[in-house]
Design a protein around this nucleic acid. Structure first.
Lengths: 158, 158
DNA sequence: ATGCATGCAAACTCTTTGCAAACGC
DNA sequence: GCGTTTGCAAAGAGTTTGCATGCAT
């Protein structure tokens, strides 16, 4: 399942005539396998042990390439000030915890119909969507595990 | 209608015991009246003629205050790299044009039910939502009115 | 062998912060 | 008059860019 998605990304690069460097392959694998919608920095730090000379710039450039090819979507920041990326392009909802800044997925079938209706009624040529609900995840809701100054009273992201 | 919303913002500041400076009032009015989900910079430039000494920092600080009070929501960037703000907190969909970076509203009743279901099934305490569809607006779709280098092939926001 | 990709460092942009002067209450 | 808010300048943070070296094809 994850290898399937990873191959999709890699094939996409190949099809575009781009080179399959070890760094790119590793970034693709990470994106395909991770469930936590990583940021450029998260990817960078995760791969550093494997690629001691890896550069953040390379991560950004690769993400940019994948984005332009339509293989990856940027989700916006999750209150932490950085862009999160998602290789899962099927219509789904992202849940952002405003306290721990974790992002998770939520499957909602009705979304597909909404998109279609929006397209019809607005006249937009829809290329993508970003459906994010933010609030407190079940964990942060109960336990005050991560005691930290609660600043985002509005829940506004960023 | 717009004055109603403006009063809501101003009352919010007053209720919080904050001061109503001319700058804050002007920013509130702009947020309440404008339909285009302005960025800090847009607000700044719009008010500069009226307040020649206005500072961008003041705009940011005011937006931050309004956000913390839950009177205004940040929508994330619209492909232009800056945060857009919305004083309309009712559940609705934002449409972002990836070419002209304009943001418009779209009313969808079904959204309310979706939110409720998400809350029930995810265990999240939902504080807000950001539902954005991005693509080409009717204007940019036909006319090449705003000729500019098309870079965002993926439609990724930012 | 060719030219795209990497990695370093510097540059950029949006946003935030510190602090003295100004002003709302 | 007191204490918040403004505005300027400088700092901060994430992201992007330029360019020489390295590597996939």
């Amino acid at each position: 399942m994850e290898t399937r998605m990873m191959n999709h990304l890699i094939d996409g690069l190949k099809r575009a005539g781009l080179r399959l460097t070890p760094q790119r392959v590793a970034i693709c694998r990470l994106l395909a396998e991770s469930k936590d919608h990583p940021t450029a920095s998260m990817i960078y730090h995760a791969l550093l042990p494997q690629f001691p000379t890896l550069s953040l710039a390379t991560v950004y450039k690769t993400l940019d390439v994948l984005k332009r090819l339509g293989l990856v979507q940027s989700l916006g920041d999750a209150g932490d000030g950085c862009e999160h990326y998602d290789a899962d392009l099927t219509p789904h909802i992202n849940l952002v915890c405003v306290r721990c800044h974790r992002v998770s997925d939520y499957v909602e079938e009705a979304i597909q119909q909404v998109e279609q209706r929006v397209a019809e009624r607005s006249g937009y040529e829809i290329q993508g969507a970003r459906i994010v609900y933010y609030g407190l995840c079940p964990t942060c809701r109960n336990g005050e595990k991560t005691p930290q100054i609660e600043e985002q009273s509005s829940g506004g992201v960023r």
